[in-house]
Amino acid sequence: MEASYPGMKVLLANNLMMAYNQAEAAQPVFAFVEDGFTKLPEFEMMLALFSALDTRWVAVMDDMSATPARKASPLLNVGAGIFELTKSDSPQQFAQYFDMMVKAPRRDLAGPRGRMGGGAPAPSTDFKKFILIGSSTGGVEALRSVLVGFPAQCPPTMIVQHTGKNFGQGLVSLLDRICAAKVVAAEDSTKLETGHIYVAAGQRRHMGMTQRKPMRTRLKEGPPISGHTPSVDALFTSAVPYGKDVVAAILTGMGQDGARGLLELRKAGATTFAQDEKSSVVYGMPRVAWETGAAQKQVSLARMAGALLQAAKA
């Protein structure tokens, strides 16, 4: 590649963490990804970063007889990785694919702050409630889709996302890159503020809320709840005393984490949502939330940000 394109800089990475850090710093125009990497759960983070940076990519198979990871993963059914190369393909074929993908129309990647959120930021006084969100498989891209619609002065928002232990800070940086509001990693005893989004992901502690005002985050060690640390159920359950001040949603994900806590919140007077089946990568957590009556309404991903913000004004 370097011989074919004078001045090109090629970065090599032998693990996803290295690849993620390099991509975040260098913002490459293209990535060749060994197909084995795409089978890892953490590749969801790479996909989201590629999407945020408009980095084109293609999976490279061991040989033509191999089964592409996208055949088994709903995360890889769409996107730039839909076609594959193999390690036996000629350098000319790699170069041709690179040319085709890089020359395709690119998005306008103007700065996120002030650009997102659909116009002028809403005054903080418009919002009377705070927002809780839980997500898992497919949730990284879902969170990007939702939070890009939040204004700079959004309601205090707390999020639990299931992800690999080394990718929590990467997720925070990624979301902060595209959000008008300030996205931060959850820390213990942080006062909840307007315009801030607190994310618990890849941590060894559960995130919840203190039981007295002013409301603060609470990080607590303990065994997995509903199979996860941090757990969506732990977050939702901790907010039950504030029921009527809560708007909560469960996004795409495998399993049932969050459904029990969402039901408790609904019984306490909270407004509750679940992502609908059509827009979910994995309709597991939202399905349980809907079928158990924990969610009052199913909402498409495209309409989720508006639904949450509107409910927070009620």
Rank of each mutant, 00 (worst) to 15 (best):
D35F: 01
Q27V: 13
V33Y: 08
T67Q: 12
E34N: 15
L40T: 12
P74R: 14
L49P: 00
E42D: 15
A69F: 08
S65E: 13
V60E: 10
P68N: 03
M64V: 15
A69S: 15
P74K: 15
L49S: 05
A52I: 02
Q27D: 08
F32C: 00
M64F: 13
M45Y: 07
A48W: 04
N21T: 09
V29Q: 15
S65W: 08
L53W: 11
P41N: 14
F32R: 01
N21E: 13
A59F: 03
S73N: 08
L53I: 10
D62R: 10
V33Q: 04
A48V: 01
V33A: 04
A23W: 00
E34S: 13
V58K: 12
A26I: 05
P41L: 02
E24C: 06
P28I: 00
V60M: 07
D54C: 09
P68W: 00
D63H: 08
P68D: 04
S73M: 05
M64C: 09
W57I: 03
L47W: 05
N21S: 13
V33C: 12
R70P: 01
T38Y: 03
D63N: 14
F50Y: 12
L53F: 09
M45T: 04
E24Y: 14
T67K: 10
R70V: 04
E42K: 08
D54R: 05
M45K: 06
F50R: 03
D63A: 13
P28T: 01
F32W: 04
T67Y: 02
R56P: 06
Q22H: 05
M64W: 10
T55Y: 06
R56K: 15
T38V: 10
R56I: 02
Y20T: 03
S51G: 13
F43Q: 11
T55V: 05
T67D: 10
A25K: 12
R70N: 09
A31C: 14
M64K: 13
D63K: 04
R56A: 15
R56T: 11
A69C: 10
T38D: 10
M61K: 00
A66E: 15
S73V: 05
F37V: 05
A72V: 02
S51D: 14
A48K: 00
D62I: 05
M64N: 10
L47T: 02
A23L: 04
V58Y: 08
P28D: 00
L47D: 02
M61H: 00
D63V: 09
T38F: 05
G36Q: 13
E24R: 13
D35W: 01
V33G: 10
Y20E: 09
E24D: 13
S73H: 06
T55I: 01
F43N: 12
N21F: 07
D54P: 07
K39C: 12
V33M: 09
E44L: 05
A25L: 12
N21H: 11
Q22P: 02
E24M: 11
F50W: 11
K39I: 02
T67M: 07
R70D: 03
D54W: 09
A59M: 06
L49A: 03
V33L: 12
A48D: 01
A69K: 03
K71T: 09
R70Q: 12
S65H: 12
E34P: 03
A52V: 08
T67F: 06
V33S: 09
T55N: 10
N21R: 14
D62N: 06
E42W: 08
S73E: 07
P68A: 03
M45S: 14
M61W: 00
V33K: 03
R70G: 09
